[in-house]
Design a protein around this nucleic acid. Structure first.
Length: 429
RNA sequence: GGAGAGGUGACCGAGAUGGCUGAAGGUGCACGCCUGGAAAGCGUGUGUAUCCUAACCGGGUACCGAGGGUUCGAAUCCCUCCCUCUCCGCCA
């Protein structure tokens, strides 16, 4: 959430930023509420001050045996009006809060303005696209043919958009998870986390999924609990409502978790295969940093994610999301799009990672602060998150990029040790 | 699930019978003095938020797990919830 003071002092800037996002927001009611809040606060605090003083007097009078009943009667009225004004204040406060919590982060000045993903800015491409002397198949066909993916039976067990990996498929998915985690922990210096897969609404509000995107989440009936849509939620909230020491920064966390998304509003899109599932595996990176380092840390995080694709020898491109495609909490986001030769007519780049800097937007919501050496005031940290990578989509990309004419799939070199030396996935018997 | 105990500042720990306790005392930490240097010792300081204000000076208000209630007044009394711990039961 944005700082109310910042909004007041930079109203034009904020309005411009929101306009870039195509977010139509009425700030007048906010400013009105804020004025009302201040007025009420002053009134209440003056009355409270009075009450505190007179209460002391009452205590003294009683001690010395005087009759205080007249004063007490007067104070009853004061207390009643405090109570009355207090109700008004908390309603006003709540209105302000609800407003602040439902407006998105401001886009960074470097972010291109645009309506949708067609206006994202291409930053770079990496690797050479594979050449096939046959028509490359989509990963769902490869997976079903090799009997390592069984989406039909998953639909029987649960429903559409749930994965069922088998044999070398299950093994490959697990190999990818381990490979990614190992790379980030030993090579990139992240500390490994295994968080809860279910979180409460406070955590989701901290990262920005709530209150606006409830429909994207799976909620546990009868509980204030939700399945995580990404491990960004539990990891970012590790230090919620804490003041951490500056020497702890930057905090770098990585975790593997399954992710659960209702995909409301995406019916009919990517209906086949592993691209869009209600449950998918992801290795995630989260950083808490000082304000001055967050953008360089973002670039590093992007590089950490890219490294996985480079090691897997998968071609990709990097784009900067335009304002229309930018997520609610982010000020700037890089997407990594992996080459999927089996998609569309002649192959397509598909999103496999998203690395974002949220500045203090989430930190303010979640109350994540730090204190500099010797400093009096705590400051909000900056939070960043990025996929490193979406495992299911990586699995799909490997199938499509490493497929051979005879229907088998070669295993990328770096994964062979994770596959007990297996070099190729053949038809499972 | 049954039976108990408890949640106070960075930490430990006071706070029966409500009032001068934002919170004693200790530890830690910071700065200063002392020292050739260090330790010890001495002194001072040391929560967060918010409002008034030009002000990170000063003052007000709020916060003792969270939320309600009683009261002129609550860390202290009442209610609800959350969390932690111990024992029993049950179960991966």
């Amino acid at each position: 959430m944005l700082d109310l003071k910042y909004i007041k002092n930079n109203l034009d800037l904020v309005k411009k930023g929101m306009a870039k996002r195509r977010a139509n927001i009425d700030f007048i009611s906010l400013l009105d509420s804020d004025l009302k809040r201040k007025k009420l606060l002053l009134e209440i605090e003056t009355l409270r001050h009075k009450r505190n003083i007179v209460s002391d007097d009452i205590a003294k009078m009683k001690k010395s045996g005087q009759d205080a009943s007249a004063v007490i009667d007067r104070m009853k009225e004061v207390s009643a009006s405090i109570k009355h004004l207090d109700k008004e204040l908390s309603a006003t406060q709540q209105a302000i809060n609800e407003f602040l919590i439902s407006i998105p982060n401001l886009p960074h000045e470097d972010v291109p303005e645009g309506v949708d993903d067609t206006e994202n800015r291409l930053e770079k491409t990496y690797g050479t696209l594979p050449v096939f002397n046959f028509k490359p198949k989509a990963h769902w066909d490869i997976g079903e043919d090799l009997k390592i993916l069984d989406l039909a039976r998953a639909a029987k067990i649960t429903g559409a958009r749930f994965p069922l990996y088998r044999d070398s498929g299950a093994r490959l998915e697990r190999a990818l998870i381990n490979f990614m985690l190992d790379t980030h922990t030993t090579r990139h210096g992240y500390s490994e986390i295994l968080p809860p897969f279910i979180v409460n609404s406070a955590a989701l509000q901290g990262t920005g999924q709530l209150p606006k995107f409830k429909e994207d989440l799976f909620k546990l009936e009868g509980w204030d609990y939700y399945l995580i849509p990404t491990s960004e939620v539990p990891m970012t909230n590790i230090y919620a409502n804490e003041i951490i020491d500056a020497s702890e920064l930057p905090c770098k966390f990585t975790a593997y978790t399954p992710c659960f998304r209702s995909e409301a509003g995406s019916h009919g899109r990517d209906t086949r295969g592993l691209i869009r599932q209600h449950q998918f595996n992801k290795v995630e990176m989260v950083k808490l940093t000082t304000p001055e380092t967050s953008f360089s840390e973002l670039d590093e995080m992007l590089a950490d994610a890219e490294k996985i694709l480079q090691l897997l020898k998968l071609p990709y491109q990097v784009v900067t999301l335009c304002t229309g495609d930018l997520g609610f909490s982010a000020t700037k986001t890089y997407d990594i799009e992996v080459w999927m030769p089996g998609q569309g007519q002649n192959g397509k780049y598909r999103e496999i990672s998203s690395c974002s800097n949220c500045l203090e937007f989430q930190a303010r919501r979640a109350g994540i602060r730090f204190r500099r050496q010797g400093a009096k005031k705590p400051e909000y940290v900056h939070t960043l998150n990025g996929s490193g990578l979406a495992v299911g989509r990586t699995f799909a990309a490997i199938l499509e990029n490493y497929q051979q004419q005879n229907g088998t799939v070669l295993i990328p070199d770096v994964l062979i040790p994770y596959m007990s030396g297996k070099k190729v996935i053949c038809h499972e018997s």
